[in-house]
Simulated scan of single mutants.
Amino acid sequence: MDQAPLVRARNVHKAFHHVEVLKGIDLDVKAGEVVVILGPSGSGKSTFLRCINRLETIDKGSIFVDGEQIGYQLRNGKLQPLSNRAIATQRSKIGMVFQQFNLYPHMTVLQNVIEAPIGVHGRSRDEAITEARELLAKVGMSHKVNAYPRQLSGGQQQRVAIARALAIRPTLMLFDEPTSALDPELVGEVLTTMRSLADQGLTMIVVTHEIGFAREAADRVVFMDGGRVVEEGSPEAVLENPRHPRTRSFLSRFI
């Protein structure tokens, strides 16, 4: 039997102020798979990503991560909302990297990375520091452990943010346009870090406009438009020979 998907979304709907942003999203992501979501601004990509770790509540449908329904629990045959504490526990298994780096400005690089492992996961300080140094080495930031965010470039801050997300030992990593706030010359260093993570088998869902990253690192590309999944398939299929006119129109801007 095939292994159950790590992420399973079914008929996911979400509206803001009566404007429907997600209109029935279905998506499976296997463990170890890298899925890149493309689409125009306003297509619902980032909203869907935020729904996966319950930063946004959904109005209809279901999302499961590693066998657990996000935000709900079945009790006595009925779905009941989870407490904030239980949701926080679910969220603690999902790493997320945002457009903005969201580093604590009053903490050093090392302090930023060890904050969650110690404060949320209860690891010892020595263990957290050892692992943080390993992660910072992995993202090429060993030389900046004692620096403060204001002393770093945007690309360096984003690589620290990736190390911080990895420090919780996530089963799933979500990237919400992680290079969109960077100057063009800094984009490459972050994408290189992400490609390295993909090569190591980390399960990743990446919302991005970086077509090159999708072509080189994705196992599957999903194109969203108008709150729906319009097309999905291998990078070769979607990027080189898209079937849907909307996908072709979108990709033509990058050629």
Results as ranks from 00 to 15, higher is better:
175 F>M: 09
228 R>F: 01
217 A>V: 10
186 L>C: 07
233 G>L: 01
205 I>R: 03
232 E>K: 15
187 V>R: 06
236 E>S: 14
186 L>F: 12
199 D>N: 13
182 L>A: 08
190 V>D: 01
199 D>K: 15
238 V>M: 06
235 P>R: 15
172 L>T: 04
176 D>K: 13
242 P>C: 11
241 N>R: 15
219 D>A: 02
190 V>G: 06
191 L>A: 06
224 M>N: 01
217 A>T: 10
166 L>G: 04
228 R>C: 14
237 A>W: 00
170 P>F: 11
238 V>P: 03
172 L>C: 01
206 V>F: 08
173 M>C: 04
183 D>L: 12
184 P>D: 05
232 E>D: 04
182 L>Y: 08
222 V>A: 10
180 S>T: 13
196 S>N: 11
183 D>Q: 12
220 R>L: 12
190 V>P: 00
198 A>H: 08
184 P>S: 11
204 M>P: 05
229 V>C: 01
232 E>C: 03
184 P>N: 10
181 A>K: 06
198 A>G: 11
208 T>Y: 02
212 G>I: 12
169 R>I: 08
230 V>E: 03
181 A>P: 01
224 M>P: 12
181 A>H: 08
198 A>Y: 05
193 T>I: 09
206 V>H: 00
182 L>K: 07
167 A>Y: 07
171 T>S: 15
190 V>T: 07
216 E>T: 11
178 P>Q: 03
204 M>H: 02
232 E>G: 01
183 D>A: 05
240 E>T: 14
233 G>E: 02
190 V>S: 06
171 T>C: 11
211 I>L: 14
225 D>T: 01
172 L>Y: 02
178 P>C: 06
198 A>N: 04
177 E>V: 12
211 I>H: 05
